[in-house]
Design a protein around this nucleic acid. Structure first.
Length: 267
DNA sequence: AAAGTATTCAACCGCCTTCGG
DNA sequence: GCCGAAGGCGGTTGAATACTT
């Protein structure tokens, strides 16, 4: 299909916004709103593409945006949420009032990622080069992208699990969560075998902000009933480890936990 | 003080999904 | 159901700034 270019390059300005451009954009949005981003720059007299205007507004000019350093609580929340959701920055941002997806993404890459244990950092790197592996999670559905809704069953889980346990090509890993049996409340990553050893201090710090993860030591209690996600050698889920019906419950719980974190932040 | 290197973050790019005709 | 426009998202880039030698 003949896809229109995202913005007509001819004559449109790129690069940093000037104060004058900001002022024009703010005035225009305050007066007319932003029902049509593509038409907005023309109407406002800006030599920018609509996308650029939207981004500038969403990431910088919107009145409710909180500027400045992230608090410890916010950082912990990001780590927790990233643990659960992967690189779904907009979803994470939705849980952090006043913070934008772009900002969170930047903070993650510049600060928080460094807090990961070395092995996990290596996995992050590995993940970059193994992006393709998520295509191997061939369970039928296309990945769900609407972040305001609960992700659909298996494909979404698989892609996120791929993010969070991204040493797929090294060895198998198992994420077990259990709400009722705390003795099984672990994050079993078979560390000796797959170089996925968890730094206990790191995990206790990460999880300390998470009220219900009282078992520590890498426990990832998301309130679900003994979910076991198994990732095979090439990042493929072992069959039978997670039924599609359970997926829905799983995500219910993930979002419930995210709600809890949001509440914590708001306190 | 100057040069080189590392870090930060605003902005861009391209892909995907949704929606309306 | 198909097509195109539009919005939204995550990944990436590169200029500005900070830090180190």
């Amino acid at each position: 299909m003949g896809r229109a270019p995202c913005c007509e390059k001819m004559g449109l300005k790129k690069g940093p916004w000037t104060q004058e451009e900001d002022r024009i954009l703010i005035n225009h949005i305050n007066t007319f709103g932003h029902s049509n981003w593509r038409a907005l720059p023309k109407q406002a007299g800006l030599l920018r593409c609509g996308k650029s205007c939207r981004l500038r507004w969403a990431n910088y000019l919107k009145p409710d945006i909180k500027r400045g350093n992230f608090t410890k609580e916010e950082e912990d929340a990001i780590i927790n949420l990233h643990q659960m959701l992967g690189n779904r920055w907009s979803t994470i941002a939705a849980r952090l009032p006043g913070r934008t997806d772009n900002e969170i993404k930047n903070v993650w890459h510049t600060h928080l990622k460094k807090r990961l244990p070395q092995n996990q950092q290596a996995n992050e790197t590995l993940k970059q080069s193994k992006k393709q592996s998520k295509l191997e999670f061939d369970v039928g559905a296309k990945p769900e992208q609407n972040d305001d809704e609960k992700p659909q069953c298996s494909s979404d889980i698989s892609s996120h699990n791929n993010n969070n346990n991204s040493n797929n090509s090294i060895s198998s890993s198992v994420v077990t969560t259990n709400n009722h049996d705390s003795s099984n409340n672990n994050y079993d990553v078979d560390s000796a075998e797959n170089n996925f050893a968890m730094d206990e201090d790191f995990w206790s710090e990460v999880l300390s902000s998470d009220k219900s993860s009282s078992e520590g030591n890498g426990a990832m209690d998301i309130g679900a009933d003994n979910y076991e996600l198994q990732v095979g050698d090439e990042g493929v889920f072992s069959s039978g480890s997670l039924s599609l019906c359970e997926d829905m419950d799983f995500w219910h719980d993930v979002y419930a936990r995210a709600e809890e974190i949001t509440e914590l932040l708001e306190l």
